[in-house]
Design a binder for these strands. Structure first.
Lengths: 112, 112
DNA sequence: GAGGAATATGCGAATCTTCGCATATAATAA
DNA sequence: TTATTATATGCGAAGATTCGCATATTCCTC
């Protein structure tokens, strides 16, 4: 695969690589929201949120719809939901494995 | 969701957010490889590759097996393959949509 | 049009990432 | 033991990201 393509993919992953932006995307799974909604739910500075939204916009992960005073954000592609879902599964599996490992170590420790 | 969990997910995405590391993971989909293999396939400095591999190791995305002189790398979890695959699909869809949009703009342009 | 609400942008400081280069470690071969 | 091959690590410079704070911009209401 040419490096340009990998570069594109890396940029998407990069856009997802921040807790705040993950929170934003998770909120968006249930439908569109305004910036104020995000601020209320996440308890962050409005300007900071706007900066994170700008990152997601630049990569076209979210799209906006302007209604009067407000801007509604939504996910551009439902595949993004699948991606987040897969990451959730990955996360749970990893945590599960770590716990199992700790259990095992403890058992070994007790029996020594 | 607590922020700690999002932080963990963000770290995984972060680890994927570099063309070289994506290339490494794509190579690993077919089985384990040594550092020298990567260097040959990707044409990069060995030290640089080792640094990228260290990032993937730190997040436990890859695991290693030492055999004499060499170190074999492999993916820890097959879910990672699914994740990359989903990103491939996402990528193709985005590119497709962009091309469609350009076509449309061109058509509109001609007819004006 | 003046004031207020919702959102975006500019800037500088602090922090993180990436690279190249030099060097360390570890296993093997001679 | 010395040399060689395979891999990892340390360091510093260049660049990117993130945050808080100040300030724009845009739309609405009076």
């Amino acid at each position: 695969m040419p490096d340009t393509l990998r570069h594109f993919k890396a940029e998407i992953f990069q856009a997802l690589a921040h807790p705040t932006r993950i929170a934003v995307l998770e909120q968006l799974q249930n439908g569109e929201l305004t910036v104020t909604n995000f601020v209320e739910h996440l308890g962050l500075e409005q300007a900071n949120l706007s900066q994170h939204l700008a990152v997601l916009r630049a990569r076209q992960i979210v799209v906006t719809r302007k209604a009067g005073n407000q801007v509604f954000y939504s996910l551009r592609d439902p595949l993004m939901i699948e991606l987040l879902d897969l990451m959730r599964r990955y996360f749970h599996k990893q945590v599960g494995e770590s716990v199992a490992l700790l259990d095992e170590m403890e058992r070994a420790d007790r029996s020594s």
